[in-house]
């Protein structure tokens, strides 16, 4: 059982950081929504507050790791330019997609949107984490602050969903492969 280095980095970007970040939204939206519904009656204990503060900071960190690894590690491999005369475009995912009118849209719409829309999430979640840390339980008394963090969290969730979905499809039609082979397990 082996995997190429580029495959591994794509997995780390998409499944290690991105999917984990995506999964974390359910908890974040749940707690933020709960504070919105209960309002001033939301009085978490210090342990709960500390845990949720750690949770949001981790989410923001995961969001930054996802976009930075995607933009600066995986994306350069995706958009690599083949040497003149190259006929096998398997190692050049962007060119492979654009070489066929039936797959070009995955780049023209999918990657063109994904590469930008993903960056809304870390900006939004950094703000959300900051506001929760800054105001803590006082947030329960400010409907406007709660509304803002909930709205930005939901939009960040949608942006992450768009980027993640297109990332999965892109990697299906034109996977980023290459680099050194890493043997994970040797057969008998």
């Amino acid at each position: 059982m082996e995997i190429t280095f580029r495959d591994l980095m794509t997995v780390v970007h998409g499944m290690g950081f991105g999917a984990l970040f995506m999964l974390a939204f359910s908890g974040a939206i749940g707690v933020i929504y709960a504070t919105t519904v209960t309002g001033a009656r939301w009085q978490p204990g210090s342990r709960d507050s500390g845990m949720f503060r750690f949770y949001l900071v981790s989410m923001a960190a995961l969001a930054w790791l996802t976009v930075i690894s995607g933009s600066y590690v995986v994306y350069p491999w995706y958009r690599a330019v083949p040497p003149p005369g190259t006929t096998d475009l398997a190692g050049y995912p962007q060119r492979l997609l654009l070489s066929n009118p039936l797959t070009a849209g995955w780049h023209d719409l999918g990657m063109e949107w994904k590469e930008h829309v993903a960056w809304f999430a870390p900006i939004a979640m950094t703000m959300v984490a900051y506001v929760f840390i800054k105001y803590g339980p006082q947030l329960a008394r400010s409907r406007q602050l709660r509304s803002a963090v909930l709205a930005f969290t939901v939009v960040a969730f949608i942006a992450t969903g768009v980027a993640g979905a297109f990332g999965a499809f892109l990697n299906k039609y034109a996977p980023v492969r290459g680099g050194a082979d890493i043997v994970l397990l040797r057969g008998k």
Partner: peptide, 22 residues
């Protein structure tokens, strides 16, 4: 407002810093 983080905080935090972040 309460102090669930166990740190000394003023009774009222102005919303300016939060508004700035938003």
């Amino acid at each position: 407002a309460g102090d669930a983080f166990g740190t000394a905080q003023p009774d009222v935090l102005p919303n300016g810093p939060g508004a700035a972040a938003i």
